[in-house]
């Protein structure tokens, strides 16, 4: 892979659900998006704008009707979900989704780690691996390193999200997808998780896409911001234009682009 190959390249991606029925719904319409290695793009948009569908198409939960997805130069548009998952880390909004509650912290981490490092019948946990997981968790000061043998189901939502984040990045993925991963947490915990996220992304120079409903967060995190509406990208902010952008300015732009101003959007997008 040459260095100038984009890490993620999405071309003309379209997806319509229930085609030909009364419930026909265009979730994605001709989406084009390119991320270079190390890019951190935040995505905003109201409910039903197609943000999660975009993630699902990248992960292979749904296959697109049209268009292509290239990851690190290889075409993954129709690759089986579990095959591309090796290269994509995804953290969901629901803290329950990313971890196995009946298994211990170290077993969960081993599950994420060994899939890249050993054969199917190799022991999942060795002393060396346990120590490695311990030190990896200790970095984030959540007190989890002393609870390695605790079942994940007994942890709080924030703690579970940290474990999930670590599981997704223990083996450096080509792409990290964050689907409102702090939205279900209290403000203090959300801030802490966001700090940890930034640290992990910076340390590993991860290519990252993050969906958020918090406009402030969207503008200060990462190096560019896109806005989606009705399945299309309607706005893309980068560099100085993005640095100078305020939350009010963004809302203004949003209503202009959308042409129809709903008062509810103001509430939805303010993130308060």
């Amino acid at each position: 892979m040459s260095t100038d190959t984009p890490m993620l390249e999405i071309c003309g991606l379209s997806k319509t659900f229930g085609k030909g029925t009364v419930n026909e719904h265009t979730a994605l319409e001709n989406v084009n998006l390119t991320l270079q290695r190390g890019d951190f793009v935040t995505i905003i948009g109201s409910n039903g704008a197609g943000k999660s569908t975009l993630f699902n198409a990248i992960c292979g939960t749904y296959l697109p009707d049209q268009g292509s997805i290239h990851l690190g130069g290889t075409d993954i548009t129709f690759l089986a979900e579990h095959k591309r998952a090796k290269r994509i880390g995804r953290v969901f909004q629901d803290p329950m989704k990313g971890t196995a509650p009946g298994m211990t912290i170290e077993e969960n981490l081993a599950l994420a780690y060994t899939r890249a490092h050993s054969g199917p019948l190799a022991p999942a946990l060795t002393k060396r691996k346990s120590d490695f997981f311990r030190s990896a968790l200790a970095k984030y000061n959540m007190g989890l390193e002393d609870r390695m043998k605790t079942k994940v189901g007994l942890l709080s939502g924030g703690q579970r999200q940290v474990v999930t984040l670590l599981m997704c990045t223990l083996v450096t993925p080509d792409l990290l997808l964050l689907d409102e991963h702090t939205a279900a947490l209290d403000p203090a915990t959300a801030e802490k998780i966001m700090e940890i996220t930034n640290e992990i992304v910076r340390e590993n120079n991860l290519t990252t896409l993050m969906i958020t409903h918090n406009m402030q967060q969207a503008l200060v995190t990462g190096n560019s911001t896109i806005m989606m509406d009705s399945g299309s990208i309607i706005l893309s902010l980068k560099g100085k234009e993005r640095d100078d952008m305020t939350m009010d300015g963004l809302l203004q732009l949003y209503t202009e682009k959308k042409k129809k101003a709903f008062t509810t959007d103001r509430i939805l997008l303010s993130g308060q």
Partner: peptide, 11 residues
């Protein structure tokens, strides 16, 4: 334990 998670991972 959690089929959702497993489906989203490479298993």
């Amino acid at each position: 334990d959690n089929p959702d998670m497993v489906r989203a991972s490479s298993i």
